[in-house]
Write a protein that binds this DNA or RNA. Sequence first.
DNA 1: CCCTGATTCGC
DNA 2: GCGAATCAGG
Length: 220
Amino acid sequence: MSWTDERIEKLTKMWESGSTASQIAEELGGVSRNAVIGKAHRLGLKARPSPVKEKPAKAKPAAPKAAAPKPAAPKPAAAPAPRPAPAAPAAARPAAPAQPQQPAPQSNQPRIVSVGPGGFLRQGPGDQQPPIPPAPPRRLVPAKPSPEIADKTSLLDLSDRICRWPMGHPGEPDFHFCGEKVNPGFPYCVEHCGRAYQAQLPRGARRPPPPLPFGGPRVR
DNA sequence: CCCTGATTCGC
DNA sequence: GCGAATCAGG
C-alpha cells in the first residue's frame, strides 16, 4: 500500500483527533502501526499527548536525559489546556474528545464515507460516535450447576452440623456427602457414627470389617 | 504480557 | 520515503 493523498488525509485526521496508531493502521488497512507512526512523524504530525505518561520535570532539575543538545526548541511542557488532550479514553476509545465535534453538522463537506471490506460504512474520525454502551452483563455459571447435584450435599455444603460421610467415590459425577443432621459432638450422623466408630470386638469374634469411607481399593 | 508512541536504520 | 525492529514507558 502506498500513501495516497486520501490515506494521508485520513491518517492526519485520525492522528490529530486522538486515535491511536493501531486504530489508524487498522482503519487504513494494509499498514502496520509502525508504518502509521513513521508516516505521521514524517508528515510532521508529531508529539501528540500519547498514553505514555509525560514526565513532569519537577522540583528536581535532574534531567539525565532531557539535557539539551538542542538549543533551539525547548519542549513546551505538558499543557493540558490546548486541544489534543484525550483525557478520558475510558468509555469511548475511538471517539475523539477534542473540541469541535459532537454536534457538528458540517455545513458543506459531503462527508467522506468509504466502504470497508465487509461492506460496512467507514467513519471519519470526526464522525465517530460511541453509540453502543458495552455492558454485556452475563453470568456464565448458573447458580445451580445442574439439577443432578442440586439436592446432593456437596463439599461446599458441609458444615459442623452436616454429616460428612462420603457417598460414592470422589471424582465421580454423583459423589456427595451424607448430609444428614449430625450426631451432636460427632462429624457424622448417628448411622454413620455407628459405621465410623466400631467397638473393638474380642479377638476371634471379628467379623469382616464394614466398608470404610472411600472403601479402600476401588472395586471394579 | 498487553498496550502506547519514538527512534533507528537498512532498504 | 518507507516501515520493521527496537526502544522506552504505562
